[in-house]
Design a protein around this nucleic acid. Structure first.
Lengths: 412, 412
DNA sequence: AAACTTTTTGTGAAAATCCCCAAAAAGTTA
DNA sequence: TAACTTTTTGGGGATTTTCACAAAAAGTTT
């Protein structure tokens, strides 16, 4: 056993920075300590040799996202999450990463953080690896304390978020005070995102989500909460000229990463519009949920829609459906076409829908319907005759489109 | 005075037909008697010489509409409505009308009907004209009786119509019984039309309307009623393959004739959708009124719309306006464009609206905006960038169109 | 089966739209 | 004022779309 050997890390230490310096002196290389989310906890200072990746990490107090992405792709982080042994990482010059060795810090079967040792002048020996393992073991309690403190704070933030979502906090001043007391800087503009999973979110998945949120830097996540099969985020929408596409991109990327890295599949992302007034968070939450509802009703039509603003007319569907039901209205053109379809078993309605779906583009629609473009043109002529439709009138066409979709949902 | 002269029409007569024969014998030419609405009341039979127009009149029990139209255009009817003297009408071969003389039958300053004398073998002399005047005088009381009887029936029909419009008759059986007792054959399909005038309808105008309704044969009017500044019609929608355009045409024609013939201007016609179930008359009435409301709010946009079905998305506007108000939603793209317009005093919103109004036709919209087509193309590129709009997505465009119109109405 | 209507597909020329480039005009910033 | 960005306009060629016509195919009626 190694217990008999000399262990320099048994000595007491006050701060993590002190400890990092200690390891650095023993192993004769720069040391960085991160938490499980790759946020910088401490780094050795008595040695000036370093590489760009480490500089960025120290400056930003977190590992840059592109480095994390690379370490995932290339297998280092997955390996660190599996084994308690040190892992050697080859130099990756494109992201400014020199040779280094990493080890994960464990508490039972949970990873609390990582220690990085840069191999700038010398490569670490097997003995050094053992020392690194000892260091990881020695530092774990310190990390545990930090984590507990953080967990408590996280609990408080989650509670705060829920209050916002459920309209239990309305005065802007009160909301700002809460933000301040949690040391969160509220963004000027925000949006609420909701990710729906096919099943309730497990603890393990929650950890994965939390990890991803902490390591993702593209969009700043102010708050998050988990509710059964939903992940709810409060995302900052500043810094961008066009936040909606940015948030869309983020949502897709986030869902893709959850799949790639943690095998969490079939995530449906949704996002509210952009708001400035924090007392409207609950409304934003409603919007995101409205997106999810519509997406479940019109999966094909809204496949690429994430943002409430981009729902277009589907925003109005619950309302319109109700109106149509109450007044038992029937679109005369559609009725005529339906009758014709029945009688001659043709498919003018389908044809019309495709044509409208493809923004009046005859070629695209013809391709979609697997017919010759001229066939489609002929059918459209017939449709305009039978349904008394003027295809130059956007107003008429919109109503047709809307009624087509409504009828579809009504199951006619 | 002519009182001293021989008047063959002083003798008593039982039926109008008998009287027509009597005139015919005196004047030695075929005679037709019509009411004020050009419905056939009586015709002489002992003489077989006639012309196509008279044959059609007798067969259809009314003067054919094209003959009436021609007599209006050419001035005969206006003249008959002004003078008590006989009027000579030249032959009009295109409508099968031979030479004839007509005289109106007056009761005080109201025209009750007309007597027509065909000049087939001989032209009428001045003496004959005097005889004709005597005949017109002699027949007026008989016509008055008929009219009173008709007026009573008309009152009953109006009352029936009001009951239908105000939901006071709901059972189909009951409705059918009423129709039957009024000797009106209900059509299979019907629509309710409402014509709005800028002022309350005067008695004189009501007469003109009634006259037009009786003489118009293109669309069968089952019932009509007048309410302050509205004329309400129950129009039959059978016989046509596409009733909506037919009813539209009729409405325009009807309004135009009221203007042409009686100088009644600024009539706004509106029409409900087509219904089969007579218990839904009140709903049809609501629809026609909805058209009028929308037309007053969006006069330009709905200039050419008469039928509720053709209102398109404007059908939904009251509902949508309410929704938008409640949720204080703002279309992000429009907001961005508005901001840009304000900042650079450009007119991207106007540009977008025009483009959408003209069904995405760059040339038409450019003409409308008085700019070069390439300018418009450039602006659209900018609009899609600034507003994050994909002009290939019909859904997005519809929402823009709708929100543009809603904002317009909200007066932003 | 023959005659007929409706629908589909193909072809090719005319028309239109799209797209790139460039210059001028207008507006902004240094 | 100069440099710069944004917007407008124009030309002109490549590409698409539109349209008319015709033949074939499919479906209906007699």
């Amino acid at each position: 056993m190694e217990g008999n050997r000399y262990d320099p890390f048994k000595a007491a230490f006050d701060s993590l920075d002190e400890f990092a310096d200690m390891i650095s002196q023993v192993l004769k290389c720069p040391i960085t300590i991160e938490d499980a989310n790759h946020r910088l906890l401490a780094y050795s200072t008595h040695d000036e040799r370093t590489d760009p990746a480490r500089i960025s990490t120290i400056i930003g107090r977190r590992v840059p996202e592109k480095v994390i992405n690379q370490l995932w792709k290339e297998g280092t982080i997955p390996a660190l999450l599996k084994t308690k042994e040190p892992i050697r990482v080859k130099s990756m010059e494109d992201i400014g990463l020199g040779h280094r060795v990493a080890i994960s810090i464990w508490k039972q079967d949970e990873v609390l953080g990582f220690i990085w040792a840069l191999e700038i002048d010398r490569s670490l020996t097997n003995d050094d690896f053992t020392l690194l393992k000892n260091a990881a073991d020695a530092v774990k309690n310190k990390l545990l304390q930090l984590q507990t403190r953080k967990n408590k704070k996280e609990e408080r933030t989650q509670e705060f978020f829920w209050k916002l979502l459920t309209r239990h906090l309305n005065s802007p001043r009160e909301i700002m005070e809460h933000f301040h007391s949690l040391q969160i800087t509220p963004a000027k503009f925000f949006a609420v995102q909701v990710y729906k999973l096919p099943h309730n979110i497990t603890n393990k998945e929650e950890q994965a989500i939390s990890y991803l949120l902490k390591t993702t830097q593209r969009v700043k996540i102010l708050l998050y909460a988990i509710d059964c099969n939903q992940l709810i985020l409060l995302a900052a929408a500043d810094y961008f000229d066009n936040p909606i596409p940015e948030l869309d991109y983020f949502a897709k990327m986030f869902a893709a990463k959850l799949d790639d890295r943690f095998g969490i599949k079939e995530i449906t992302p949704a996002c509210s519009g952009i708001y400035e007034d924090y007392s409207k968070i609950s409304k934003a939450y409603d919007e995101a949920n409205a997106v999810l509802t519509v997406k479940s009703k019109f999966p094909k039509e809204t496949k690429n829609i994430i943002n409430y603003q981009k729902l277009g007319i589907y925003q109005l569907f619950d309302l319109l459906l109700e109106k149509r039901r109450n007044e038992e209205y029937e679109n005369y053109s559609l009725k005529k076409l339906h009758e014709y379809d029945q009688k001659h078993n043709s498919n003018l309605l389908e044809t019309l829908e495709s044509f409208l779906n493809f923004d009046d583009n005859i070629n695209d629609a013809a391709k979609d319907l697997n017919v010759h473009a001229n066939t489609l043109a002929y059918r459209l002529k017939r449709i305009s005759e039978i349904g008394d439709i003027n295809f130059k009138d956007p107003n008429q066409k919109m109503m047709l489109y809307i009624d087509l979709k409504l009828n579809k949902y009504k199951g006619i």
